[in-house]
Structures are given as structure tokens and as C-alpha cells.
Design a protein around this nucleic acid. Structure first.
Lengths: 219, 219, 219, 219
DNA sequence: AATGAATGAGGATTCATTCAT
DNA sequence: TATGAATGAATCCTCATTCAT
């Protein structure tokens, strides 16, 4: 719901604006992010922000949705629908981690929808954020049950729920200070969070999921 | 680090203050919570808040730590250390859910430590929040491996990590608007989140954990 | 160090603001001056003050420096460098008194730099305030010693010091309540401080200075 | 006008209170001095301050008057009324400097009476502060004119005025940051303000006064 | 008489949004 | 369309004084 004017500005300028907005909101949180600072960082006039968007809220919503689209593209873009669920999950975890490293701001925005005081945004965003992933995961699981690649007695909804839960916490551990500290404590990681450590964690998690989903014969 | 003064006021008054503070911070988030409103809700003068605490930050930290203590008491208080890990986890999930229903504010405070802009609090709180649970869970797992109740090839750190991840997301689903919407979408819950639905979810989750941890002979 | 914004507003508005600020600070003192009241008096919004200046401190510093510039202009503006020291001092005392009558606020600001609790301002302002006058006075004295208009055995630094001391206390006596009361007591002035009385005092002081500075032959 | 209760407390306690009050008021200035901090520093309860004094104002007035008495005692205590004016002035300057070094707080309080916003105190204090010195100085001058030690054509009031002006600025230069900076600039003092430097300055000033007051024959 | 917790008016500063240019 | 100065409600914190104990 941004104003028409947003489409009329130079793409590079729009890109810069959205990118800086995402970073600022991720850095400060919605309420503490300052429209004046955003204008400065984005290289536009404060007043211009209000030419493009009705309000800070609208801007925030737009940036979140935009970020959602980007992360979806990054994670699901290169995914082959024909792959079995295990291959797909490995892809999703790996791409998710790569995106988190490159654009932590968008993941932080996602995590923040559950922050106290941001319920108005949750009402608007949460469903559209979650539905796609939920539907996709459930569909693949259902298909692979039929294919005999997944245990037939599996409760698909519940499985999708906990698989995604692990995914969320995993990504959060890459971008949020709190979840970073938590992961280091659990996994007893001393040095920095290298790609190697992260990849190893992905491998273990996908293995765990496989252990639960696979039919007995597969094991 | 509250001032001495806090200990000198009537317990009922202190209780009221801490309770209202927890609720307000949970409702609005740290930055949007207004000290004046807190004073009104708690039935004390604005200035009195500053007799008890150096600053809003100190108050927040204290309320968080206090909430942590309460939740720990509620969850681990009635736990028998002799129980096996499966029994303990069921207890923890059940008590956690009960506490979340009774005092959602404290869980919301916990979830908020990972919010953007609250990193200063994460630095101070995260470790003390996570260490206890991590240590406890790892210790029980290690013990029950020795007892032959848990697969001996289990990576204890990683197992503790994902079990706790499921626990966190589960509790979040009970108190955060975003996670509620998400859970309803995944689990296709139409009506309200009854205790029955929640208990069923606990049962399934503990079952899942058991499936992964148990040695083959157990199955 | 005011913000650029200050230069961009209508000169009349800026003038009004600076003038009202000087008056308010002179009336109340730095700490007791209220930014909200200043805004009202100056006819601008409270927030606008912070568009022009980073903080109350910056505003105060600027007003002081501005006042210093004005007083220097008023006192030294019409001074002919060719005049001998006696003529110059008479000019300075006379112009100083005239400026004090017209803009007591600026002199009060000057006097206040020595107030308890304003040391941070003294660190920044005192030297720039005093250096000009000190250098000027010393230079003229040195020159006039060479010219034979001033005793050659004079300690120039010390002479400049006490001459300026008399000047300061004299001006203070025109603008500060305390120094007014003191002067009336010493000089046994009953009625109001008329221009005539002040001029007479100037005459006597310059005469005194002359008596000390003049070479014996001159007397 | 303190309450009777002030007289009833242990002298040591009263002494401590007055001393700490003087120091705090000198350090912060009247308005910025905090009654709570004073209570802490003085080792009494905040409420007790109001048992001894009606208000902060009363306390301030009392402390100022007390300081005035002390400084008078220190400066005029050892003065022999029989001494000629030159001897007396040397004594006053020397004792004043010694007192300033020992109890700068009282001199700072004196200087502060001329601060902006403290006019209410000037109305009450200034006359009683100045009258004693003015009367004394004028009397000695008059007497020594009769004695033939001072020029008979001297305007006594005016002489007393400027002599005291030099005295005030001199003392201010020992205790106020602003006047210190100013004196160092004028006298080109590089190192610290040693006793030697101060004594030299006193000598020069008294010499200057002598040069002006002395009858021609004396020179 | 001593204490110190309670009070609430007061004051600096921030920031989303408006609007004249 | 772009700009950025103007606005004023909102918010944290201070502190003189009171008063119950």
C-alpha cells in the first residue's frame, strides 16, 4: 500500500531506501527507528518518505513484506519441486543460512514480528509470512508419504510445525544476539560462528529430521 | 541491583509493582512502556519508582530476572531429579504451559530479549537465562545415556539444543500473537487454544523427542 | 556550533531568539532558564530550538559568544587605535557603561561564567573572553611606554590586570544586583544610578589610572 | 533564622553540616545543590535538615552568613586597629589569600551572590556583607588622612571602592575557575599558582595602592 | 528529635508528521 | 515532486518538601 509515487522514483533510489529502511528497523526495532535518520541514511528528504508512504507503519509493513519476498526468493528460488523432502530441507536450511549471513536485517525483521508491542503488525503479517512455508512443507511431506519416502503414520501438520520450529530457531541463532548466546552455550562453541560450524549444525539437524520422518525400512 | 529501598516497602506493594511492571513491559515492550503509566497502574508515585530503581533499565532488568526466577520455580520446582528424561520433559512442558497460561507476561519478557534494539539486555540476561536449562538438560541426558534409557550415540549438546528449541517455540506459541497465528496455521486449529489442544500438542512433542532419544531396544 | 538550520531562518526570527535567550539566561541563570519558556518568549516551538542547537548547553555557549562579540563591537568598534591609552580607556569605560545600560543581559552572562557549577562553560569561554582585552590593553600600554606616555618602570601585565579588574567590577556594578548594592554602599549613592553619577565615577577611575601610569614629568 | 533545634544538636554534627553545606553549595551552586546529597554528605537524615531549617533558602542564607562570619574572623581577627592603612591592607590581602586557600568554599559563596537568579539572596545578604568592610576601610583611610599618612585630597569613598574592587577580583582569582584562567592570561603565569606567585601579586597590589594613597612627601 | 519513603510538579529532549516553498 | 523547517505531544528523570513511624 505505498503511494504510487514510490514506483515513480529511480529504481536505485527505491532500492537504497528499502535496504536502508530494513537495516535501520532491524538495528533499532520499529519504535526506536527514527524517520529522520532513515531519510539521511537513504539520502532522501524526510518529507519524501511521506510522499512514498502514508506513515511509518505503512513503510514498515512494506519493508517487511519486501523482505519476506526476498527471503522467499533466496530460499525457495533455486529449489527443485521434484526433490524429496530431505533434499529440499537441506536446501532450505542451507539457503536460509546463506541469506541470513548476507541479509540478517530481513531475518531480524521477521523475528521481530513477535516482539511485545508489535502485535498490530503480527495481525497483518504473520499469516502471510507463515502460510507459504506451512503449505509447502505439508505438501511435500504428504507427497513423500505417498511416495513411500516418509513414514505413513506421520502427523503431517505436527511434523511441519516442529520442523519449521527448528528452522526458525536455527536462523534466529545466526542473527539475534540472544539466540547466538544461547546457541553457543548449548553447543559449547568457543570461537566465532564459522561457516563450517553452521554447516555441521545444518547437517545434524537434517539428519535428525530424517531419523524421525523416514520409514523403518529406510533406516 | 535495585536500591535498598525496594526491600523496605510492604511486600504487597512490591509484589503489585513488580507484577504491573512485568505486565506493562510485556504489553508495550521496553521502549514503549511508560514509567508514568507504570506508576499509576502500580498505585505509586512516579518519583517512587526512582526510589526503588536507578533507572527504567534497572527496573526492566530486575523484572526480567524476577520473572525468570518465578518461571524456573514454577517449572522446575516440582520436578523430581530422579525421574528419567522423558518424565522430566513431560513435566517441564506441562508446567511451562501452565505457567504461560497463568503468567504470559514473564514468557513474553523472555521472548523479547531477542528483539531488535534490546541487545544491551541480551548481553546481560541471555546467558543467565539459558545456562540453567542447558546444564540441566545436558546433565539428565548424559545420566540417562549411562542408565541405558537414551541412545548412547546421541550428541548430547545438539540434542539439548533442539529439544529446547521446540520448547521455546511451543511456549512462544502460547503467549505471542505471531506464534499463535503461526501455530494455528500449522496445526490447523480453528477454535480457541483449549487446554486439551495444548496437552495433545505436548504429548505429541514428547513422543517425538522420545522417538529420537530412545535406544532401539526400547522401541 | 549551532546547526546549519540556524543560518537558514529569517534574520529577524534569529535575532529575536538570540535576544530572548540572552535575556532569559541573564534573568534566571543557566540552570534555571527553561527551554519551554524560551520557546514561548521567542515565539518558536520548543522543538525548533533543537533544530537550531544540539542542546541547551550549545545554545548557551552560542548566546554567550554572540554576546561577547556584540559587546566587543560596541566597546571597541569606535575606538581609534591611534589614541593614547588614557583616551582609549575613557572610551572603553564609557562605551562599556553605555552597552551595559542598553544590554545588561550580555554583561550578566559574562559575569555568570564565574558562577559555581558553570565551570564547564568557564573552561570553554573564559580564555576567549579575556584574551582579546588582555592582549589589547597590554599592547597599548607597551606602545605608550615607548611613546613616553606611560611610566617606563611599569609592570605591564600587572597593570593590565588591575586596570581590567577595576573595569569588570565597574561594569558589574551597573548590572548585578549585588554589585549595585555594594557600589551604593561604598559611594554612598542615595538616589538612582543616574548617567551623571556613572560618568563621574568613570572620570574618577580613569583619573586614578592616569595617576598610576603617568610618568612623573607628566604630573 | 534557623530553627531552635539547630542549637540543640552536637556541635561537631552542626559543624559538619555547615561545612558540608558550604562545600556543596560552592561546588554546585544554589539551585543545583541537592538536599539529599547534602544530607548524605553531612551524615544526617534528609528530614533532619528540615528540622534545623525551614527551607533550602534559609539553610543557604545561614551558611552564607556563617561563612561571612568565618571569613571576617579569619581576615580581621588578627588585625591590630592601630596599624596604618598600608599595614592593614597587607594583612587583609594576606589573610584573605590564606583563607581562600583553606576555605575556598566560603569565598565562592560570596562570589555567587552576584550570580543570575540569586538576586533574592543579594537583597538579603549584599549589604551586610559589604557594609562592614566598607565602613572599616573608609574609617582607616579617614583616620590616616588625619595622621598625614594618606593624601588629604583623596576621595575616601571612591578609594575604598576601588581598593576593595581589587581585593575582590584578587580573591576571586584564587577560587573561581574563570578568574583563575583570566589571571593566568593577564599575568602570563605558566605553572601552578604557587604561594610565592600569590604573595608577589599581593606585594605588587599593595605597592600600587600605596603609590596612589601616599602623600607626595612620602614618596 | 530523627528518619527516609512518598510525592508530583518541573524540565530537557525526541520524533512522527505537516506544509510552505 | 522534493525539501526540510516547524510543531508539540510524549517521556525519562530530578528534587524540595512532607509526614508517618
Amino acid at each position: 500500500m505505498p503511494k504510487d509515487t514510490l514506483d515513480k522514483i529511480r529504481p536505485a533510489k527505491r532500492e537504497k531506501l528499502l535496504s536502508e529502511a530494513a537495516k535501520l528497523f532491524a538495528q533499532r526495532g520499529y519504535n526506536q527507528a527514527d524517520m529522520a535518520e532513515l531519510a539521511t541514511r537513504a539520502g532522501v528528504a524526510k518529507g519524501s518518505l511521506y510522499n512514498y508512504f502514508e506513515s511509518k507503519q505503512e513503510l514498515y509493513l512494506y519493508v517487511c513484506r519486501d523482505g519476506l519476498e526476498r527471503s522467499r526468493q533466496a530460499v525457495y528460488g533455486g529449489l527443485d519441486p521434484g526433490w524429496d523432502v530431505y533434499r529440499q530441507l537441506e536446501h532450505v536450511f542451507t539457503q536460509g543460512a546463506a541469506f541470513a549471513r548476507k541479509h540478517p536485517e530481513y531475518l531480524i525483521l521477521y523475528l521481530n514480528v513477535s516482539s511485545a508491542g508489535l502485535e498490530p503488525f503480527a495481525e497483518k503479517l504473520s499469516l502471510e509470512v507463515e502460510k507459504y512455508t506451512a503449505d509447502h512443507l505439508k505438501a511435500v511431506l504428504t507427497r513423500d508419504i505417498k511416495r513411500g519416502l516418509v513414514r505413513s503414520d506421520l502427523n503431517v501438520n505436527h511434523a511441519a510445525f516442529w520442523i519449521n520450529s527448528l528452522y526458525i530457531v536455527f536462523l534466529a541463532s545466526l542473527v539475534s544476539r540472544h539466540f547466538q548466546i544461547r546457541m553457543r552455550e548449548y553447543l559449547e562453541i568457543k570461537g566465532r560462528l564459522s561457516k563450517k560450524v553452521v554447516d555441521e549444525e545444518i547437517r545434524r539437524t537434517v539428519e535428525l529430521i530424517e531419523r524421525v520422518l523416514a520409514p523403518l525400512k529406510r533406516r
